[in-house]
């Protein structure tokens, strides 16, 4: 493929995703709302990703603590360990790792599900039965992702911090009271808020891209695989792009 056509393909993809997002906002606020499907999706997305997110957060918290100790000890700052770990988990590691795991798990499953519904004409069947498939399938999934990701991130942060408490106590003794005091003293509004706000955007990006890839998947079983795969690739990339933009905005607003 020539450079030219690859560039125009990239641009048309960006255009299509923007149009798809625009349609989400147009359709999403018109009644009738698909409440029961929304709750079902929230349950699926939240509940089914939680074990994976929890295990990863636990390991990350533990590993981060154990690995940071030698460096801090070198500077005679081992007592700052809880504070340092808390800030890194809450500001960056919790949101980004959780979002990446969800991009892998939720993004691919949405891409594959909608892709196979497209291929087997189930989306067409919804359309001819007078139900708006965009509303029923896309709007509910995108909203569910947007709402559930921040909750998953908060849970992951909590689990990560608890794991870090265990990590701190592997060598040396810090009581739970002292640990929590140190953690909460180190965390400020400007650590928590921007981190929380960006997770909504992470969730939205995972939902929109998974749905877009599935909804417009190509005919054939091959198309389903491609939809699932590219949903993961593109939404993971989007997470880093959003992270980059978020850090700039937080910087401009003085939330550092």
């Amino acid at each position: 493929m020539s450079k030219q056509s690859r560039r125009s393909e990239f641009l048309s993809e960006v255009g299509n995703i923007s149009a798809f997002t625009g349609k989400f906002f147009r359709e999403g606020f018109k009644p009738r709302y698909e409440w029961s499907e929304l709750f079902r999706q929230c349950y699926i997305i939240g509940y089914e990703s939680f074990p994976l997110v929890g295990i990863t957060a636990f390991i990350m918290g533990l590993v981060l603590t154990v690995q940071s100790r030698p460096t801090l000890e070198e500077f005679g700052a081992a007592s700052y360990l809880p504070a340092m770990v808390a800030v890194s988990i809450v500001r960056e590691i919790g949101p980004v790792i959780t979002a990446l795991i969800c991009a892998g798990k939720i993004g691919s499953s949405i891409g594959a599900e909608l892709g196979s519904m497209r291929v087997t004409e189930q989306i067409d069947a919804m359309e001819v039965s007078g139900t708006n498939p965009f509303k029923y399938l896309v709007v509910t999934r995108v909203i569910a992702c947007t709402m559930m990701l921040p909750i998953l991130v908060v849970l992951a942060d909590g689990i990560g911090l608890y794991a870090s408490y265990i990590g701190v106590n592997l060598k040396g003794i810090v009581s739970w009271n002292l640990y929590t005091t140190q953690v909460f003293e180190s965390l400020t509004f400007s650590d928590v808020m921007p981190a929380l706000v960006k997770t909504y955007f992470f969730g939205f990006a995972i939902g929109i891209i998974g749905c877009y890839k599935g909804y417009f998947s190509n005919k054939g079983t091959e198309g389903v695989g491609i939809a699932a795969n590219s949903a993961v690739v593109v939404s993971s990339l989007m997470i880093f792009v959003i992270d980059l933009i978020a850090v700039q905005i937080a910087d401009i607003l003085g939330l550092t």
Binding site: E113, S116, M117, T120, E121, Q122, D124, A125, M126, E127, V128, S129, G130, T131, N132
Partner: peptide, 29 residues
């Protein structure tokens, strides 16, 4: 959408909703 409720369309591939039971499939329209 109004007109479509008067038209039944049997798809070549049946197009049953995989994630729903037969009952839910029938309730959908």
């Amino acid at each position: 959408d109004e007109l479509r409720t008067k038209i039944g369309f049997l798809f070549q591939s049946s197009a049953l909703y995989d994630s729903m039971t037969v009952r839910e499939n029938l309730e959908f329209p």
